[in-house]
Every structure is written in structure tokens, then in C-alpha cells.
Design a protein around this nucleic acid. Structure first.
Lengths: 224, 224
DNA sequence: ATTCAAACAACTTTCGAAAGTTGGGTCAAC
DNA sequence: GTTGACCCAACTTTCGAAAGTTGTTTGAAT
């Protein structure tokens, strides 16, 4: 009989924790991921770690080279530029479909996600140069909710996959000073409102600018 | 020192052969892939087969369910419809960029790939209801060459990934009777010419129609 | 000093058997 | 005849040790 519960495998656990640590910056870009070390850290076996890494590699979070092991995907200005172009194209496409297809339930979920985002604490009290993990999660959830109206699973997943990759660049934290004059909350509100109002062109334009601006600030903060 | 050569691992081999067999229809959609069987067939171990399957799962060619193993991705009309929409959107986007960015070398490669496609035998002498594997390879290479001008690796890879998934549906072979009145070769020529002439809008329109038409014929042939 | 080869250490890849899970089938109780 | 618990076979998942690879270091020969 199907056990009511998770249907979870041990590899899933390692995959999830490894992913967290990579996106959370515990393991930094370019860092080599050796099996002996991973097995100790996640209390698991080579096989499980290997499968987790294989999956992360397909998602673009780690890179592998035959017989030379795995590495957390290295960051570069050029790569961020490429990633940004891809994201603007895809996310705008998917948002367009989302706004066209989304029903009233989609509207409700987007509004709810936005509310949570507005209430999430932005800056870490301990380390004011970096945004909190909670805010990052709420941010991701909001953008995901915006796209959720798109009925096409594949396109949605491509958009979210690219968004995930971009999370790696959160390592290049933007100091509040750097983002001076920017009101991220206002941008989110505007995108939400245009979407709910079914103002497709405006919503798409605002989202594109939102992504590009974030990327540009990241690049500026990296160059210095 | 890095050995000049392949840098190939045993898993890569199994992955490639398994992929071939899935796309070639040796393993049919919905079929369960049991490890004992796979190990015999590809003369390998559980671990290697497992990693190959993990990779194929990320590419969408197989599906996995915890503790119930792997299955060749099942086909359905609904799924083909969704896949087609995604492909039209993404491939048209990437072709647009390809035609804008591609240099003269890109033109040359596209023309070369088209020449090979025109010369490839279309129908299998043994089984005239099905196109040959050689033609399918040349067809894929031509479409890939068309997109190769797009400088954005990620977008290119998304497009090619979706194209790969669609290859699964080649199982639903179109009998020549069904495609009566269609001149696929002419469609390819027209797409190529518009692309080389940098007629972006025409090229994109033709490509979109090309993909949609193929899909429509497949759906018709499946329903009967 | 420089070059080359051989030996080494650390790691990655591969394997096959042990442990765990699932779904089905059997048998007794009602 | 139906229900429910138990058992069994087949498979998936997990493990840790064996085999193979890479890059480096050492030492002899030019």
C-alpha cells in the first residue's frame, strides 16, 4: 500500500540541503565539492551525494568535469549579463501568458504573496549589508506567484529555473548605499497592480526593467 | 596533465545509448525501466544506470517516482499541445535573436546543414511509414544550425532541450498519406532563405507555422 | 639548470551486495 | 463471500570498498 506520507528518498534530502547551502552562500561559487567532505558534512554516502550533484548540475547550480569532480558554478559579469538577457526574455513571455490566462484565484494568490513580501524584513539586523533569507524566500514566492497564471508548465519551469540560477548572484550583495534612490517595494507594487489590472504591456515592461535594474546594480557592485 | 582525449566516463556511454534507444523507439513511451533489465542490456551496474536515468529525467525523457522506479515519459495529445506552444514561443524567440546576431559563418553552417538535409533519404525503404534515423538526425542538425547564431547559450539550450523532448513524439509516425499536400522540403528552404536574407519577421512566421503544422499532423494521426 | 619518467597521494568513478520499500497474493476469521 | 492481516517476491535505494584517474612530487639523466 502507498504509505500516506512523503515518498521521500534520502537523496532528496541531500539534494535539498546542498541546494540550500549553495544558494545561501555557505558553499561559495568556484568552490570544489569533494565527496569525502560532502559525505561527512551531510552524513551520507558517495552514491547519494553523487546523485544530488547530478541533479544540481542539470539545474546549473554546479558544474562537473569528468574525473575532476564538481564545483559550485563560478560567477562572472559576462555570465550574469547573459543570464539577465535570458531571464528578461523568458519571464516577460511567461508573465504575458500569465496575465492573459490567469484566473481570479491567480490574482488572489499573487496579492497574498505580495502582502507577505511587503511584511518580510528586508535587511538582516546582524549584517545590514545583506538581505535576509526570509525576504529572499518571500521575494522568490512573489515572482513565482506572478508567473503561476501561465498554464504552460514547461514555460513556467524554464522561467523559474533561470530565476533559481540568478539566485546564485545574491552573493554579490548590494549595499543599501548602492541601491540609493531605488524603491524595490514600489516596483513590486507596480508590477502587481498592472498585472491584476490586466495591463499586459505595462506589467511586462515593468518586470523587464525590474530584472534589468537588479542585474545592473549587481554588476556595478561587483566591478568595484 | 589533462589527457588530450575524450574525458569520457562510463555513465556517459550508458546515458547516450539509453537516450538513443528512447528516441529511436526501441524503448517505448510508458514502458517501465527496471534496473536488473537495464544492467543486462547495457552491460553495466546499477549505479551507472541510475545516474544516466537521473540525467534523462532532467531532460524530460524519463519520469521517476520514488520507490517505483523510472518510466519512459508517456505521450499524450494534451502534452504534445503544451509542448508545441512552448516550442513555438521559444524557438521563434531564439530564431529572432539568431537572425539578428548571426555572422557570415552562421549563414554558411546553416546552408551546409540544409544541403545535408536535402540530400538525406526521407523514407525508410524497409518501412515506408516512417522516416529514417538519418533524416531525423539531419533534420535536428538543420534546425540547430538555424538557432546557432543566437549568442545566448542558455536560450539556445532551452530551445534545443524542448526540441529533444518533441522527438519522443516521432513515435506517432505520420504516414505519407496523412501529410498529403505538404512539402516539408519547401518549408525548410523557405525558412533558410528568409533567415539568410535577414527577413526576421518572415523567418519567424514560417518557423512557427512549420512547428505547428508538424504537431497538428501528429495529433491528427494519433487520434485516429 | 632542465627534462623526463616513474611513484605517490588524493580523489573520482564503478561496482555488487545489503537494506528497505512496494504491491500483490495467500490464508484465516467473520 | 468479504474483510483484514500477514507474508513473499521483485524491485529500488543505499552503502562502502575496489578500481581507475589525475596532478604533483621526487629523483635520476642530460
Amino acid at each position: 500500500m502507498a504509505t500516506s506520507g512523503a515518498g521521500v528518498t534520502r537523496t532528496d534530502g541531500v539534494h535539498a540541503r546542498l541546494r540550500e547551502d549553495i544558494l545561501g552562500g555557505v558553499l561559495s561559487p568556484g568552490q570544489r565539492l569533494k565527496f569525502p567532505e560532502l559525505c561527512r558534512r551531510y552524513d551520507t554516502s558517495v552514491g547519494a551525494a553523487r546523485e544530488a550533484l547530478t541533479r544540481l548540475a542539470s539545474a546549473g547550480l554546479v558544474r562537473s568535469q569528468a574525473h575532476q569532480g564538481y564545483v559550485v558554478t563560478p560567477l562572472s559579469v559576462d555570465d550574469l549579463a547573459e543570464l539577465t538577457v535570458a531571464r528578461v526574455q523568458i519571464e516577460c513571455l511567461v508573465l504575458r501568458m500569465s496575465v492573459s490566462d490567469g484566473d481570479v484565484r491567480w490574482e488572489a494568490n499573487a496579492i497574498a504573496a505580495h502582502h507577505l513580501l511587503e511584511r518580510a524584513p528586508y535587511l538582516d539586523p546582524d549584517n545590514p549589508a545583506r538581505s535576509t533569507a526570509d525576504w529572499a524566500a518571500a521575494h522568490a514566492a512573489f515572482h513565482e506567484a506572478l508567473l503561476a497564471g501561465c498554464a504552460n508548465r514547461r514555460l513556467r519551469e524554464v522561467a523559474i529555473g533561470l530565476r533559481d540560477e540568478a539566485e546564485l548572484y545574491r552573493q554579490w550583495s548590494i549595499t543599501p548605499a548602492k541601491a540609493k534612490g531605488r524603491d524595490v517595494a514600489a516596483e513590486h507594487r507596480a508590477i502587481l497592480e498592472a498585472s491584476i489590472a490586466r495591463d499586459v504591456d505595462v506589467a511586462v515592461r515593468l518586470l523587464g526593467e525590474h530584472i534589468s535594474t537588479t542585474s545592473k546594480l549587481l554588476i556595478d557592485s561587483a566591478v568595484e
